Amino acid sequence: MSQTVKGVISRRKGADVELVDVVVPDPGPGEAVVKIQACGVCHTDLHYKEGGINDDFPFLLGHEAAGIVEAVGDDVTEVKPGDFVILNWRAVCGQCRACRKGQPQYCFATHNAKQKMTLTDGTELTPALGIGAFIEKTLVAAGQCTKVDEADPAAVGLLGCGVMAGFGAAVNTGEVKRGESVAVIGCGGVGDAAIAGAAIAGATTVIAVDIDDAKLEQAKQFGATHTVNSSRTDPIEAIRELTGGNGADVVVEAVGRPETYEQAFYARDLAGRVVLVGVPTPDKQVTLPMIDIFGRGGALKSSWYGDCLPSRDFPMLVDLYKQGRFDLDAFVSERIGLGDIEAAFAKMARGEVLRSVVEL
Results as ranks from 00 to 15, higher is better:
Q3M: 13
K13L: 15
G28N: 08
G28Q: 07
P29T: 13
E31T: 07
I36H: 01
F57T: 02
F59I: 00
F59Y: 13
G67M: 05
I68E: 06
E70T: 06
E70S: 12
T77R: 13
N112R: 13
N112H: 12
K114Y: 07
L119C: 11
L119H: 08
D121G: 11
P127V: 01
L129W: 06
E136F: 00
V140P: 00
V148P: 00
L159Q: 04
V163E: 01
T173A: 08
K177A: 14
V182C: 04
G186E: 02
C187R: 01
A199Q: 10
V206K: 01
V209C: 10
D210N: 06
I211F: 07
A214M: 14
K215E: 05
A224I: 05
N246I: 15
V250Y: 02
V250S: 01
V252Q: 00
P258M: 04
T260H: 05
Y261P: 04
Y266D: 15
L270T: 12
T281I: 13
G298R: 05
K301L: 11
G306V: 06
F314N: 08
V318L: 09
D319E: 15
L320F: 14
Y321K: 11
D327A: 15
V332D: 04
S333T: 14
A344E: 02
F345K: 04
A349P: 02
